[in-house]
């Protein structure tokens, strides 16, 4: 009986970890996109587009990426609080 409970606990644990890793992959992909792709690799192409007085690539490198970083962490906090609750790990 104890043995079965242990297996169930471990399964739950594994599922929680997999969902966590999925969130990390998505959020880090966005993190990479706004900084390394928009701010560095594609900066010249994006600079042909204007955002008011800013060239778009330059804006991502010096402003936009930072705003997105802040949002990403708060989204992560929300997602994880929900996930913790779902699995009863929020104590």
């Amino acid at each position: 009986m104890l043995h079965i409970l242990l297996i169930i606990a471990m399964e739950k644990h594994k599922k929680y970890w997999r969902e966590n890793l999925k969130y990390l992959a998505i959020l880090l992909a966005i993190w990479f996109l706004v900084s390394y792709v928009f701010g560095i690799i594609l900066v010249e192409q994006l600079n042909t587009i204007r955002l008011g007085g800013f060239k778009l690539g330059f804006w991502f490198a010096q402003q936009g990426s930072i705003y997105v970083f802040v949002i990403l962490i708060f989204v992560y906090v929300r997602l994880m609080n929900k996930l913790d609750k779902k699995y009863g790990y929020d104590t």
Binding site: W31, S35, A61, Q62, I66, F69
Partner: peptide
């Protein structure tokens, strides 16, 4: 410096 010193927090 701008991206490097903020992106690390993510």
């Amino acid at each position: 410096y701008l991206m490097g010193w903020t992106g690390g927090y993510v």
